[in-house]
Computed example of a mutant assay.
Amino acid sequence: MRDLQSKSISELLALHAAIMEELRERNVLRSANNPTGDLAEYLFCTSFGWVQESNSAKSFDAKGDDGTRFQIKGRRIHRRNGSRQLSAIRDLDGFDILAAVLFDDDYQVMRAALIPVSVVREKSTYIEHTNSYKFLLRDAIWNAGGVEDVTACLRQVERAANNR
């Protein structure tokens, strides 16, 4: 990693692009966006066998065998930004369960949970100017009724993916 300091900006960006492309080839990423959301989807869908929806699907990202609709969100807790605010949730009626994961600075799973939409409704704040809901994945969420801690499941998939 120290060798990165000797690289030019162009070389660093080319390396970033090559890494993103390799992650797409390995089916970890599905888009060219920030990898946090795609990584979260990959880990949850691989852990639980959910079927990912197309990238253009509105309100949910995956479905379970029983038809349960999952909205999947990830947040990277960066050393420069410790916010736990997930990306905007547009429609609280479009999914049944929020599958949410917090990553550390190096994209390692810190904590993950399956959160019933009733808890998301109770703990979210509507933001008028973005026409969306803000949800913070605070530690107290894991104590809310119906929330399932799935950290160990995602870490198991993470370990397996890192060993291939």
Rank of each mutant, 00 (worst) to 15 (best):
L136M: 13
V101F: 04
L13S: 10
R90N: 15
D61H: 01
N163F: 10
P116T: 02
L43H: 00
A112W: 02
D93F: 10
E53I: 00
D91I: 02
E25K: 11
G94T: 07
A62S: 08
L4E: 06
E21P: 02
D96M: 04
G74Y: 06
W142S: 04
F103C: 07
L29T: 08
N143I: 09
G74N: 08
N163W: 14
C153A: 12
N27K: 13
E148I: 09
Q85A: 15
R2W: 12
N143R: 11
Y126W: 10
D106V: 02
E128K: 14
F60W: 04
R155T: 05
L13N: 10
Q5F: 13
D38A: 06
D3F: 12
E158V: 10
T36M: 04
T68I: 11
S87N: 08
N33Y: 13
E22D: 13
M20P: 06
G74D: 13
N162C: 12
R2V: 12
D38M: 03
C153V: 13
L43E: 04
D3G: 15
R84A: 03
D38L: 07
L114P: 01
L102T: 03
S47D: 14
M1N: 15
K7W: 10
V51H: 03
E122I: 04
A113T: 03
R26C: 08
A62K: 00
R75A: 07
V109I: 06
V109D: 01
T36A: 08
A113C: 01
A161R: 15
S56R: 12
F70Q: 03
A40E: 05
V157N: 07
A112Y: 03
E25C: 13
L39V: 12
D96L: 06
G145I: 15
N34C: 02
F135Q: 08
K123H: 14
S118Y: 07
G94Q: 08
Q71G: 08
A99W: 03
A14H: 09
N27D: 15
R159N: 11
G67P: 02
L92K: 06
N55C: 02
K123P: 12
G64M: 01
G64P: 04
R111F: 01
V28C: 02
A17T: 09
E41Y: 01
R159G: 11
R84T: 10
V51L: 08
S83H: 05
D106F: 08
E21V: 09
E22M: 14
D105E: 05
K123Y: 15
Q71F: 06
Q52E: 14
